[in-house]
Design a protein around this nucleic acid. Sequence first.
DNA 1: TTGTAAAACTAATGGTATTAGTTTATATTA
DNA 2: TAATATAAACTAATACCATTAGTTTTACAA
Lengths: 191, 191
Amino acid sequence: MSPRAGLDTQTLVLAAAELADEHGMEGVTLALLAAKLGVRSPSLYNHVNGLKELRILLATHGLQLLYADMSAAIKGVSGGEAVHAISRAYVKFAQQRPGLYETTLQAPEEGNAGLEEAGAKPLQLIISVLSGYELGKSGELHAVRGLRSILHGFAALRNKGGFGMPLDLEESLIRLIDAYIAGIGCMRTGD
Amino acid sequence: MSPRAGLDTQTLVLAAAELADEHGMEGVTLALLAAKLGVRSPSLYNHVNGLKELRILLATHGLQLLYADMSAAIKGVSGGEAVHAISRAYVKFAQQRPGLYETTLQAPEEGNAGLEEAGAKPLQLIISVLSGYELGKSGELHAVRGLRSILHGFAALRNKGGFGMPLDLEESLIRLIDAYIAGIGCMRTGD
DNA sequence: TTGTAAAACTAATGGTATTAGTTTATATTA
DNA sequence: TAATATAAACTAATACCATTAGTTTTACAA
């Protein structure tokens, strides 16, 4: 423990991400992280600039993993199938990495370049999936906001146990996306 | 300050709700609340059983106010108009009381009777607004989950600044609800 | 082999919640 | 009205937490 633990920033972020999933974003503390890594908490400051920066790094990392999952999900599919696939991937990620997903939404772009970019990529992916519907410039904007609302709302309520019984949650998501696609014409504008 | 500040639980909750809106749910601390009330923090324990219970009381209070707003919004309207009205009221509440709204979603029912009831009432209101669509037993369940997802997702992303420019956010919500209603047939089941 | 930079450490500060025990104001009762 | 009991405030203390300052020590490079 004492003679050089061999830490670096990435190791900290990966360990902190595990803590987030185990104890919630709230439960990620420098004291706990240091203990997990066999080190005293002030030592962490050699690799990260305090809890605030750690949270930004966590959010960035989470967004990168989320992007990878969403991206893989829509490989080779398009249209409604792609909307369903990207939605399933989004909710599944939030379910499998609940704490990491949580960090993803705090203070979206706080002037941090890496975080801004990491957040823009999943957004761009959603835009690309909806572009086939020819909704117009502002219509596409409304549609993206709508799908993001659906995905985050469903994921958050599900993760917090807000849906009561866990029965047929997959079907609830499928039907919600079906309804969204069926009504997507309401988003269309003439620009 | 010293001779009897005349506090009671309700006063604490109202003051804490203000703090939540000013500083976020995170920023509601017993130390800050005590300072706001001109009292030392241990004194608060005469009226509330620690921070955990205060948060439960905050959530309960928030749900009651949310219920009142939603309830007032659908007086005398029905069908799609009611769905729009209840949605507008929900998002507006989350916007006007961001910190209080935040407390509303933490650990939905943790065995606390008052919180459970306070949470059930807005839910019942949504059910009543959707009952006119004759979606069937489980179809109604899917539809309620869907609308709740939309409302929370939209409110949360909006509050966190996740939608970039604040232009025509009202229109985004209107169109999203329009799409949901247009596609609500996808929820229908035969039971 | 020696010197340096970085990574660990200890110690200290100030913030947090919470518990225990004490004082005191208010309200009730004799 | 006076005495008493209850409850609401207090102080003091404990145990966490993040963070900063200053020190030791390791690993690597000259």
